[in-house]
Design a protein around this nucleic acid. Structure first.
Length: 804
DNA sequence: AGCACGCCGACT
DNA sequence: GTCGGCGTGCTC
C-alpha cells in the first residue's frame, strides 16, 4: 500500500495555503510522521522547499502524478498533534497562512534557509572553468548574478554542461562537545607509564590525567584549557588506544554563570488563601476555568502563581507562565529558578536562536516542566499542562502586531481547553475586556484587596502644569516636584521619574516659519536623537543630519521642541546638579543585558534618580524608592484610540505601585495638563472599580469593545490611489452583508498615511453578531490575490490593539 | 515565491 | 521571420 503525506509547503500565499500530497518513498516509509519537517520538490523546475507533514494517508484526490518527498529535516516530529491542530485553528481565526502559523509556533532556527546554485556536470573548456567557476565545482546563483555571468551559464545549461540545484538548509544544529574517556584500567595505564620510560613528559601527563579520571568523561576543551596538554597530545593518546573521543550533545545554557538562591513558599495571608483555593481546586480537578486574579502591586500575586505551580508539579503536570518581555528581569527569573531550580526553562528575546532552540528542546523532552517567557512562549511544547498563567494580563504586547495577529490570551484559553487545565489572568488593572467577562461570569473573579506588607498605597498628588506655565515655570519639573526630589536626595532615598512617551516625540521646528523636518518616506516628522546626533524616523528608520538652517526659509532660528529623556536629563542636571541620574530608554538599553545592568546599579544605590520611559514601570522592585514622578501623564490621552484612557490609567496605577514597597512610605507626583481627566483622578484614588464602571459606560456609548467586537482592515500600496480604491472596493463589498447595528468607520487614511513610501487606508468594523463576516473577509483575500502580487497589501486584524 | 507558457513589439 | 518583453496561472 502506498503511503502519502499531506504537506503544508513553505510558500506563504493564498493559493498555496493548503496541503499538497506527496508520495513517501520506501526509504522514508518508517521514519516520516505527522508534524515532521520534510523537503519536497515544488513547481515545474528543480525547486525544493521545506514543508510540514500534517497528515499521512494512503489515497489521494490529486489527478496528476504525485512527486515524492526527497528528504527529512528532523528525526522526530517538531509539531505534535496539539500544535498541528492549533496552527490550523489559528490560521483560520487570524486570517494568516498555515505555514506562517507553524513557523511562528516553532523556534526561529527551524525555519529553512534556501540556496540556489549552479553546479558543473560536464567538461567545459578550462578557461571558462576558471573564469566562471573559479576552479570550483559549483557557484551560488546570487553570486553569478552579481558578477553578471548568468547569460554565459545559461548558455552552458542549454548544452547540459551545468545544472541548477536548490538546497534546503536546515539551520537547526545542536551544539556538540568532544569528550574523552579512558579505555584502560588504572593498572594498565600504570604499565603504559612505565613503558614510556623517561621520555614523553606530555604523554606521561596524559596518562596521569586518565588515571585520575577513572571512568568519568572530560571534555577535550576543558582538558586543554586546564593542563598543558594540547589537542595533538590527546590525539596521540587516542591513536595508542588509551582513550576514546566521542561527541555528546550539550545545551547552550544562558544562565551558566549564575547561581540561584533557593527560596521557599511563604505562608499565604487570608486574602491570598481565599484566592488560591478555587485555583487549586480547578488544578486538581483538571478542569478548564479562567480566573481573573486582580490585585494591586505588592498584593502577593507572584506567591499565588508560585504555589499554584508547585501544586501542579506535585500532580505530575507542567506549568506555563507568560510575563511581558520587559518584566522578564533577572529578579523575576530568580524567583522561579530559586523555587523550581532545573525544572525552569526561560524563553525571552535576549537569547540567541541557538539558546532558544535548546530551551525549546528541554521543554519538548519534558526536562523542564515550568516554562516562563514572553508572548511567543505560549507555543512552548509543554506536555501535560496543569496550569497556564498570564501575568499583567492587560498588556498590549500579548497581541502580536504582525501576522499571525494572535492574542496570547486566546491561545492560552485554547490550550487550556485542550489540556483540561485552568488559566490565571493576573493584573492590578485588568483589561476592560477581561474584567467585563468576569462580570458576566465567563471568567471567575478573584481579588486580593490588601498588600502583603499591609502598607497603604502611596499618596498620589496631581500637579496642574497649566498653573506652572502661568507662573512662568518653563521647565519640565513643577516647583513641587523639584522640592520633593531635593528632599529625597537629602534623605538618601531614591526617585523614579517617568516620561510618558506615548504619542510624543521631540522634533525640530523653525521658529520663523514653523517648518518641521519631515521624513522623506513617511508622513511624520523626524525625531531628534542626541546620542547619534541625527534626526531619525521611528517608522522606517530613515536617518539624516540635524539641520542648523531651516530648509524652508533659510533662517537660523531652527530649534528643538518636545521632550525626550535626553533633554530631560540635561534639564535635570541644570536644576539639580548634585543628583546622580541613570537614564533608561530605548537608546541606553539597546545593547543586550543593558537593561538589567542599569537596574542593578540603581538597585545598588549608585544613583539617586532613575529616569526613563514606560519600560521602568515594570519589574523594578527596590525598597528605597520613596518618590515617583510622572512628568507628563496625559500625552497619551490625546491619541485617537479608544483605549487611550485605559492605557493612561494602567500606566499611572502601575508606576504608583513602584513607590514605597518596604518600610518607607511612598509618594507619587503626577504632572498633567488635564488634571480633571477621570483616568488621572481615579488613578490618584487607586480606584479601579470606578474607573471600570465609568470607562464601560463610555465604551457602551461609543459602541466599542467590550460591547462590540472589532476588525481592522488595512490596505496599502505605493500608489495612494490604489490603496484608497481597494479600501473603497472592500467596503462596498462588505457593507451590504452587514447587520444594521454594525458600525463601519472608514475608509479613512491612516493617522500616518504614508510609511516607508507606502500609503495606508483603513476601515474599522464594529459588530455584535456577524456570522458571515469571517467568510466575507476570506473571500476578499481570495479574490485580491492577483493585486496582491502587484504590490497591494491587505491586513486584517481581528480585535486590534492599535488603531493608529 | 518562482517558473513556464503565451501572446505582442523591434530586431539579427 | 525570431528574440524577448512581462502578464497569467499553477505548483501535489
Amino acid at each position: 500500500m502506498v503511503s502519502i503525506a499531506k504537506v503544508i509547503v513553505d510558500i506563504p500565499t493564498m493559493q498555496t495555503n493548503k496541503p499538497y500530497d506527496y508520495r513517501i518513498p520506501d526509504e522514508f516509509e518508517q521514519d516520516v510522521v505527522r508534524g515532521m519537517r520534510v523537503v519536497v520538490p515544488f513547481g515545474l523546475g528543480a525547486r525544493k522547499v521545506q514543508g510540514f507533514v500534517v497528515e499521512i494517508t494512503h489515497s489521494t484526490d490529486y489527478e496528476g502524478e504525485l512527486k515524492s518527498i526527497v528528504g527529512l529535516m528532523d528525526l522526530t516530529a517538531v509539531l505534535n498533534q496539539e500544535m498541528l491542530l492549533l496552527g490550523k485553528e489559528m490560521a483560520r481565526k487570524t486570517y494568516a497562512f498555515q505555514i506562517t502559523c507553524y513557523q511562528t509556533m516553532l523556534p526561529a532556527i527551524l525555519k529553512a534557509k534556501y540556496e540556489k546554485k549552479i553546479r558543473l556536470i560536464d567538461e567545459i573548456p578550462e578557461d571558462l572553468f576558471f573564469e566562471l567557476f573559479k576552479g570550483k565545482n559549483e557557484i551560488n546563483w546570487d553570486e553569478a548574478e552579481s558578477r553578471a555571468i548568468l547569460p554565459q551559464l545559461i548558455d552552458l545549461k542549454k548544452k547540459d554542461a551545468v545544472e541548477v540545484v536548490y538546497e534546503v538548509k536546515n539551520q537547526a544544529k545542536t551544539k556538540k562537545k568532544r569528550v574523552l574517556q579512558a579505555n584502560l584500567s588504572f593498572e594498565q595505564l600504570e604499565d603504559e607509564k612505565i613503558s614510556l620510560g623517561k621520555r614523553g613528559p606530555k604523554q606521561r601527563l596524559l596518562l596521569e590525567v586518565l588515571q585520575m579520571l577513572d571512568d568519568k568523561e572530560i571534555s577535550v576543551s576543558e582538558l586543554t584549557l586546564s593542563t598543558k596538554l594540547t589537542a595533538s597530545d590527546i590525539r596521540t593518546g587516542e591513536k595508542k588506544d588509551w582513550l576514546t573521543i566521542k561527541e555528546v550533545e550539550v545545551y547552550r545554557d544562558p544562565f551558566k554563570n549564575q547561581s540561584f538562591k533557593p527560596t521557599v513558599s511563604f505562608q499565604l495571608n487570608e486574602g491570598q488563601e481565599k484566592a488560591i483555593q478555587p485555583i487549586l481546586k480547578a488544578v486538581s480537578e483538571e478542569r478548564t476555568e479562567v480566573f481573573l486574579l486582580k490585585g494591586v502591586t505588592g498584593s502577593g500575586k507572584t506567591e499565588i502563581y508560585l504555589q499554584t505551580i508547585a501544586q501542579t508539579l506535585q500532580n505530575n503536570k507542567s506549568a506555563l507562565m507568560l510575563v511581558p518581555e520587559i518584566a522578564l528581569t533577572p529578579q523575576m527569573v530568580n524567583h522561579f529558578k530559586g523555587r523550581f531550580g532545573e525544572e525552569v526553562a526561560v524563553l525571552h528575546s535576549g537569547l540567541s536562536v541557538g539558546e532558544k532552540y535548546d530551551e525549546w528542546r528541554k521543554i519538548e523532552r519534558g526536562e523542564a516542566r515550568v516554562v516562563v517567557g514572553a508572548r511567543s512562549s505560549i507555543f512552548a511544547p509543554v506536555k501535560n499542562i496543569g496550569v497556564i498563567i498570564i501575568d499583567e494580563e492587560h498588556e498590549a504586547t500579548y497581541k502580536q502586531d504582525e501576522n499571525p495577529r494572535y492574542h496570547a490570551r486566546d491561545i492560552a484559553i485554547w490550550r487550556a481547553n485542550y489540556h483540561d487545565c485552568p488559566v490565571i489572568l493576573g493584573s492590578a488593572t485588568p483589561s476592560l475586556e477581561s474584567r467585563a467577562r468576569a462580570q458576566k461570569n465567563v471568567y471567575t473573579l478573584l481579588e486580593l484587596p490588601t498588600r502583603v506588607n499591609r502598607k497603604e498605597l502611596p499618596d498620589v498628588e496631581i500637579v496642574d502644569m497649566r498653573e506652572e506655565v502661568k507662573n512662568a515655570n518653563r521647565s519640565s519639573f513643577s516647583v513641587l516636584l523639584q522640592e520633593k526630589i531635593r528632599d529625597r536626595i537629602a534623605k538618601k532615598e531614591q526617585i523614579v521619574l517617568l516620561l510618558n512617551r506615548r504619542g510624543y516625540s521631540s522634533f525640530v521646528m523653525c521658529r520663523d516659519c514653523g517648518f518641521v523636518l519631515p521624513c522623506p518616506n513617511c508622513d511624520i516628522s523626524l525625531t531628534l536623537h542626541m546620542d547619534t546626533k541625527t534626526m531619525k524616523c521611528h517608522y522606517c528608520g530613515h536617518e539624516e543630519k540635524i539641520p542648523y538652517i531651516c530648509p524652508s526659509c533659510k533662517g537660523n532660528k531652527i530649534r528643538y521642541y518636545g521632550t525626550g529623556t535626553q533633554k530631560i536629563e540635561e534639564e535635570l542636571k541644570e536644576v539639580l546638579p548634585e543628583a546622580k541620574v541613570i537614564r533608561m530608554d530605548v537608546d541606553t538599553t539597546r545593547k543586550k543585558g543593558a537593561h538589567e545592568k542599569l537596574l542593578t546599579s540603581f538597585g545598588n544605590g549608585e544613583a539617586d534618580i532613575l529616569l526613563g520611559t514606560q519600560m521602568i514601570a515594570k519589574g523594578l522592585d527596590f525598597p528605597n524608592i520613596t518618590l515617583v514622578g510622572v512628568l507628563n501623564a496625559d500625552t497619551g490621552l490625546g491619541l485617537p484610540d479608544f483605549r487611550a484612557s485605559e492605557r493612561t490609567f494602567q500606566l499611572l496605577t502601575q508606576v504608583s505601585g513602584r513607590a514605597g514597597r518596604a518600610e518607607l512610605t511612598g509618594e507619587v507626583i503626577v504632572q498633567t495638563f488635564n488634571p480633571e481627566h477621570y483616568a488621572i483622578q481615579l488613578a490618584k484614588e487607586h480606584d479601579y472599580d470606578t474607573f471600570y464602571k465609568k470607562e464601560m459606560s463610555l465604551r457602551h456609548r461609543g459602541s466599542y469593545p467590550p460591547y462590540f467586537y472589532t476588525v481592522l482592515i488595512t490596505t496599502s500600496h505605493e500608489e495612494e490611489l490604489a490603496a484608497a480604491k481597494k479600501m473603497q472596493q472592500i467596503v462596498q463589498y462588505i457593507k451590504p452583508q452587514l447587520q444594521p447595528e454594525t458600525i463601519m468607520l472608514g475608509p479613512t487614511p491612516k493617522a500616518v498615511a504614508r510609511m516607508n513610501n507606502r500609503y495606508y487606508y483603513q476601515t474599522i468594523i464594529k459588530y455584535k453578531n456577524e456570522p458571515h463576516l469571517k467568510a466575507a473577509l476570506q473571500t476578499i483575500l481570495m479574490e485580491s490575490q492577483k493585486e496582491m502580487t502587484k504590490g497591494l497589501q491587505i491586513a486584517i486584524d481581528s480585535e486590534p490593539m492599535n488603531f493608529i
